[in-house]
Amino acid sequence: MTTIIGVDVTSSRSRYARNVSAAEVPIGHDIETAFVRGDEDALRLAYDEYGRLVYSFCARSLDPERAKDVTQEVFLSAWRARERYNPEKGRLGAWLMGIARNRIIDNVRSEKRHSDRRADEDTVELSTEAEVDAMNDKMLIADALRELPDRARRVINLAYLHDLTHPQIAERTNIPLGTVKSDIRRGLARIRRHLEDQHD
């Protein structure tokens, strides 16, 4: 057994069967272009990149089983409609989140109608949309924060999520006050661009 398993594959006696392409190989260009072109592994790349974002969005608005189903629907319908995606108009992640938003709203509405038949439908729909939109934007903000440089992310985190004043942040982090302010200003601008990708 050991002798067989330890065969020397570099031996000149080795014969090679015809080489066939691999199933899963990164193509090495950006996901957006590959996605529109329909490269099969582009869907996998998109899933690797945005699966957590889309699934987390769904999981915060729906029960786990539905969250899984809707995430699958989002990637499938995006793939089927990939020709409609225009990379120049925004990032693929924002486009996927837009699809997720609509699917989640449909699901939440039908859940709410089902659970409370007496509810005024118009009210239900308004509150649902507002809640899901807010969650959508929060997720995109969280996604944008992940892409900020470490220092800017930390400073914005302290300023907004932890309500520290700029001087408090400067004191706690030993970052000059002017840098704190400019990190926040530039960071917010990047977050805004991140969200604008979807709103265009």
Partner: peptide, 22 residues
Amino acid sequence: DEARIDALLRSMTDDDLEFAAP
């Protein structure tokens, strides 16, 4: 947009930054 981002950021917690794996 700025006002909306400002308000959303203030309403967020560290939990909002954690994404769940599918």
